[in-house]
Design a binder for these strands. Structure first.
Lengths: 345, 345
DNA sequence: CTGAAAGCGCTTACAG
DNA sequence: CTGAAAGCGCTTACAG
């Protein structure tokens, strides 16, 4: 098959600044000036350059630009555990909104909740010389970030603090929130409270369970551990809740320690006669409709605060890393306020 | 304040390959070979280089590497409208999983449902020389992508087809799905069906409304347009549904044409006496519990198919752009199957 | 207002 | 097994 038109259809390579300069009959430097908006170019020259750029469909190479001008990239990285969990993606949405107003672009990548992948993804972003880095960490080990930190890349840990690198972090007051919510359940008369928590590896799960322990111990329940169950995904949470309710000594209240677990628990309980009171950590769209009491907070705000912190650092604020603790609020709702039945099983 | 240690604490600049080579007493080329895993280096030399790299906390500059070696970046871009909508983020999750297996890294950025921002974000990714590009488009105009397309960057449009650029796309069979679901409602006896659709600018909304029109016309309802209402976010959908149900001639069934609208409609209907049948487009976590019939499909699969398409192109498959239409399935559930009440108002 | 030279930090040929 | 030279596509000084 022969092509008649010499290079009408085939455009093997991308036009560079040099091509534009050549076509416009100016130096490469002048072309650069025009296309990157620098002043001091005669209007007619500028027009020639712009025309040439358009004709050649020129698109600057950011890699080259950023490389030459040092690490003044406008890219900011966000490493998240799970793209399917709206809790994380809403944090990202909050951060993005604020960063955008400051001319920065947020790029999100996922660790898929794997510490090793988190490390790789984080390093890859750093190798791409992001201006700042946000991490919702799953790994417990972040010492490898210390050099980057020292080189001045602002890093903010979200939802869980950094362990072995001194970085800013934004977290919720997990422990107090769960302690107080548990106290409410106890005040309503509940003694058999089934807690469904995420894996012990997860910092927030540990904090929340500690809050539960605080309240149970204060109420004189020393064997609180027997009420703690684990689930990481919706399906497991559902199974755990079903088993609990079917077993002997079934709990009169179920306390789900994050949004995925709440989803599982709610689905397990649906349609059951004499359902238990249900509490959840994290608010969700159908909580009011379903009458679930929750520990509410705003993930978008979490992201916004993280972005603020990074912007502060970029603006030159120095000093010790800070840990910002955001308050949560308890939202009492219908069936979540159900007291235990009078007649025991 | 004077610093005693010369440069123990302050590390002004990043170590480069050149620094590593110097410390290891080899050429820069040899250092490069070791650190990028090329063969033909004596083990002892390699060790010296690795030690030097570690000592200097060397981290390669991907910008420089990618610039020199041409556009063989491992970065792939994904432009999404709204980070808060799990429908989109799950598509991204699906794409990411497959791409990762092929050594590619997915970076997600958001257009915030603004055509102008979509354009900027897309161009910025292209300037960063991503290997492939995924877009869930909000804009109707994509002619500016034609040159990039011609330069061989695979581009896949998801959920909505590209209009003025010949690119691959993956979409759902919106029209047929809604037509058949509407036919079911009609078969159940419903005549007053309140449809709540997204803005007319959105392609999927137009297709879905067309499906509704097909079914209504086939049933002899020529004034189907009076049953079509619009809402873009949860709050508006809720208000629209409330108004509809409170008004005269209230619908006996509500059909919500996407996940956000369903959320609003469900919350509006909650606790109402004699609630209407509810159908939704897009499945969701609480649909079974709430007894909502839905047009179900798997966003993760949508992403996976998009990734497959891009990988095919990267592998050199040529030919006309394809439009892949994925089937949906109707899931009938409790209250969604409610027939209209016998006694009219 | 415009341009020739040097260089950002790497890798690609090409020699030895 | 190792290295000196050139260059990826831009921008930063520095001249005129």
């Amino acid at each position: 098959m022969t092509l008649d038109a010499p290079d009408a259809t085939a455009r093997p390579s991308r036009a560079t600044l040099r091509d534009v300069a050549q076509l416009a009959e100016v130096s490469i430097k002048t072309a650069s000036r025009v296309l990157s908006g620098q002043p001091n170019v005669r209007e007619e020259t500028a027009r020639r350059v712009r025309d040439a750029a358009r004709a050649l469909r020129f698109r600057p190479n950011r890699l080259a630009r950023d490389l030459r001008s040092g690490a003044v990239s406008t890219a900011v990285g966000f490493v998240i555990g799970d793209l399917s969990n709206p809790f994380y993606t809403q944090i990202a949405a909050g951060a993005e909104r604020l960063l955008r107003e400051h001319g920065l672009e947020l790029f999100i990548a996922t660790s898929d909740e794997d510490p090793e992948r988190e490390r790789r993804v984080t390093l890859t972003m750093l190798e791409r010389r992001v201006r700042a880095l946000f991490v919702v960490p799953v790994a417990e080990e972040h010492a490898y970030l210390v050099p980057e930190q020292q080189l001045g890349t602002p890093m903010v840990f979200i939802d869980r603090p950094a362990v072995d690198v001194a970085a800013d972090s934004i977290v919720l007051d997990n422990r107090r929130a769960v302690r107080e919510a548990t106290e409410r359940l106890i005040a309503l008369g509940h003694r058999r409270i089934g807690l469904v928590a995420d894996r012990t590896q997860v910092w927030t799960a540990r904090e929340r369970v500690a809050g539960f322990a605080d309240a149970m111990r204060a109420a004189g329940t020393e064997d609180w551990q027997r009420w703690v169950h684990r689930a990481h995904d919706v399906a497991t949470a559902r199974a755990v809740a079903s088993d609990l309710l079917a077993g002997p000594d079934a709990p009169t209240a179920l306390f789900a320690l994050n949004n995925r677990i709440t989803a599982g628990v709610v689905n397990a309980v649906a349609g059951l006669p004499g359902p238990p009171a249900i509490l959840g950590f994290d608010d969700f769209e159908f909580a009011a409709t379903l009458g679930i009491s929750v520990i509410a907070h705003d993930p978008v705000d979490l992201g916004r605060r993280a972005a603020e912190t990074a912007l502060d650092r970029l603006a030159g604020r120095t000093g010790m890393p800070q840990q910002i603790v955001l308050p949560t609020r308890f939202v009492a709702r219908g069936s979540g306020e159900r007291p235990p039945p009078k007649a025991g099983p």
